[in-house]
Design a protein around this nucleic acid. Structure first.
Lengths: 203, 203, 203, 203
DNA sequence: CGATAATCGAGACGGTACGTCTCGTCTTTCC
DNA sequence: GGAAAGACGAGACGTACCGTCTCGATTATCG
C-alpha cells in the first residue's frame, strides 16, 4: 500500500513557500532553467515535500501561477469571479477589453510565466484540462456572457456558436503573441474587433 | 576569436544521419525524452559533431522537421513551392483547404513533431524567426495569393490586411488543436470558413 | 559555504564497492586506463558518490590500496601493527627482510598497484603526506625499532640518524625496482645489506 | 601498407617548435594538464605531425627534456660528454657534487619537468630504457669513472660493484626528493657522503 | 497528557544527461 | 607527398538534477 499523503496534515507554510519560490525562479531564470532542486532550496523545504504533493516541475509552476491568478480574482469580486464591462455598446466594450489584453501581453512581467504556462499546456493534456477548468473556463464564461448579452440586444447573430466566436476573437491575438509573428498594438485590437463584429453581424 | 567551424568541411553524411535520428527519436519517445546523447548514438556520430553545428536539442529537432518539410516542397513543385487550389470559388476552395488541415492535425504521426516544433517556437525567439522565414512564410504567401485572387474577383473586401485575415482564418483552428480545447471536425472547418467569409465580405 | 558532506550519512556499502572496483580495474587494465566512470559502473554507484568523497581518480585508487594494506595489518597484529624479526643477529635479520622485499617486488600482482601508488605520490604532495602517515610511517617505525635494538646491542653506530640509515638501506632497492635499472635478486639484497652494515659499523 | 614516414623529409622547423612548446607547457601548467592538442596549437603545427613522429604525449614531453639535456652537454664538452671534478680528494669531490645536486633539486624550475620525466619512466618501460641509454647512462658513466679513479688511488674498496655503489650514493637523495620525505640540505648531502665513504672504505 | 504516526528539512544515493575536452584518425587544401 | 588545419567518432570529464530513499526532529491528532 503506497498510501497517499493526508492533505489535512499538509503544511500550509511550506506550500506557500514553494509556490512563491517557483514564481520567483521562473521570473528570474526562465521556466526551462528552473529545477525542483532550486525551488526546494529557495523555499527552505525538502525535495520530498514537493514530490509528495506535486507530480513534477510542470505541476508546481503551473499551480504557482494558477494560485496567483485565483488569488487575484478572490480579492476583486469574492462572490462573482470575473465580469466584463457592459455599457450596451458591444463594439466599444470589446475594443476596451481587447486593448487591455494587448497591453497586458506587452507587460514583460507577464512574458515569462505565461509562456511557461503555455508550454506546459501544449505538452501535458492533464494540465491543459486543469487550466481550462480553473483559469480559462471562468474567464471564457464571462466573455461568453457579454456576447450573449449582445445577442439578446440584437447586436450579434443569435445562431453562432459562442465557443467558435470566442476563438475567432481571441485566437489571432493569442497566436500573434505566442509566435511573435507581428506587433500587438491598439490599432490591431481595433481591427480585430471590427472584423469579428462583421462576422457576427445578424444577417 | 572563438573561431566558427568551416561549413565547407562539414560532413553531409553526418548531417543527414543526425537529422534522421532526431526525427525517429521524437516520434518514438516524444520530444521531452529525446537527448542529444541518444541522437548522437543513433546517428553513429560524436556529440561534438552535433554541438559544433547546432545550439542544442531544440535547434536540432527543429532543423530536422524543417528539413523534412522543405524536402517535401522540393519534390512537388521544384520551381514554385506551395500553391493552393484556385477553382474560382473561394468558399469551396477554403473549405477544401481547411478540411485538409483539420485532417492533417488529426494524424497522430504529426502530433509529436508539430507539438515539439511549437514548443521550441514559443520558448526561443530565434527559432521562431527561422520558422517564419523558412516554413510559415512560403505557406502564408501561398495562402495570401489565393486570398488576393479572391479580392481581385470581388469575392472579398479589398481593403483588409491579409496578415490579419490569415490569422482570423487559421489561428482559431491552430489554437484549438494546440490547447486541445475542442474537437477538430470538418464541420468545424466549414463553420470557421463561413464566419471568415462573412467577416471578409465586400461591404 | 561550500558545505562538506556529512560523513555520518556515508554509505559504507558504496565505499567498499568503490574501493574494490578500483582495485580490480587497476589490476585488469592498468592505472592509466582506469576511469572514474568505469569505477562507478563496476561498483554500481553514481559518479557523484565518488566525487562526493574523493578528489579524483588518484585519490580513489590511492585509498583503495591503502585500505587494502591497512586491512592486512589489522588481521595480523591487531594491537601492534608491524614488527620485524629480531633474532639478535642484525645481519641475518636484515638479509631476511631484504630478501623478502625483493621477492615481494618480483610478484607481478604487486606491480600495477604499487607503481600506480607511486605515480600518485610523485605528482600529488597531499597524497604523498597521507601515504607517509598511514602506510610508510608505521612500517618505517618498525624498521627503525629494529635498528635501534641493534644500536643498543652495539652492532650499529649509535650516532647515525635513523631516517638517513633507512634511506641508505631501502632507497637503492626501491629505485632499482621503480626505474627497472637492474635485476632484483637475493644476492643483490645481501650485497646491499653488507654495504649498509659496513657504513653503520660502530667506529 | 601503413608505410612509416620517411625521416629524411621531416621538417626540423616543426620538430623544434613541438619540443619547445612541450617544454613551455609542462612548465606552465604541469605535466598532467598538457595535451597534444595544446602542444600542436602552441607549436603552430598540425596534430598529425606530432602523431606521425611520436607515440603520444609521454614520448613528446620525454623527448623535449631529453633533447634539452643533450643540448646542454653538447655545449660544454663537445667531444666528451660529462666529467666530474677530480681533485684527488674523493670526499671533497663527492661532497661538492652532492651539494650541487641538492641545490639543483631545490630549483623550482627543475621541479615540474623532472617529476614529469620520472612519472613517464615509472609507467613506461620503453621510455625508461631510452632514458637510461641517452641521459642517465652517460652521467652514470662519468660518476663511475670518478669512483674508479678513487679505487685506483686506494681510497675506495676495489671489490665493490660500482652500479650498486652509485645507487647507494644517489638513491637516498633521489628518493627523498621524489617522495618529499625530508629536507634536502647541504648537511644532508655531507652526511650521505660520509656514510657512503664508510661503506666503501677499503677493508 | 502522553503515545504514535505522519510530515517536515535535509541530504545521500543510483542514475541520466549535460556541454566540454582530448584522444587518435581522416580528409582537404596548400606548398 | 609532407604539413597546416581542422572535422570526425569516441568517450571521459566533472556538474546539475532527477526521483527515491533514509534519517532524526518537529507537529498534531487520538487514546
Amino acid at each position: 500500500m503506497p498510501k497517499d499523503p493526508d492533505p489535512a496534515r499538509r503544511s500550509e507554510r511550506s506550500r506557500q513557500a514553494i509556490l512563491e519560490a517557483a514564481r520567483e525562479l521562473v521570473s528570474e531564470v526562465g521556466y526551462a532553467k528552473v529545477s525542483i532542486e532550486a525551488i526546494a532550496a529557495r523555499a527552505g523545504v525538502g525535495k520530498q515535500t514537493i514530490y509528495r504533493w506535486w507530480r513534477g516541475k510542470g505541476a508546481v509552476v503551473f499551480d504557482a501561477f494558477l494560485a496567483l491568478s485565483e488569488a487575484g480574482e478572490g480579492e476583486a469580486g469574492e462572490g462573482g469571479g470575473v465580469t466584463l464591462p457592459d455599457t450596451g455598446d458591444i463594439e466599444a466594450d470589446l475594443k476596451t477589453v481587447m486593448r487591455a489584453t494587448v497591453a497586458e501581453f506587452a507587460d514583460p512581467a507577464f512574458e515569462a510565466p505565461i509562456r511557461a504556462l503555455n508550454m506546459e499546456i501544449v505538452s501535458d493534456p492533464e494540465l491543459a484540462a486543469q487550466y481550462r477548468e480553473r483559469l480559462a473556463g471562468p474567464v471564457d464564461e464571462a466573455k461568453k456572457a457579454r456576447l450573449r448579452s449582445a445577442q439578446r440586444a440584437g447586436q450579434l447573430a443569435a445562431d453562432v456558436d459562442l465557443d467558435l466566436a470566442l476563438e475567432l476573437l481571441y485566437a489571432p491575438l493569442y497566436q500573434r503573441w505566442l509566435q511573435r509573428s507581428g506587433p500587438l498594438t491598439p490599432a490591431y485590437a481595433d481591427a480585430l474587433v471590427d472584423l469579428f463584429l462583421k462576422a457576427m453581424r445578424p444577417s
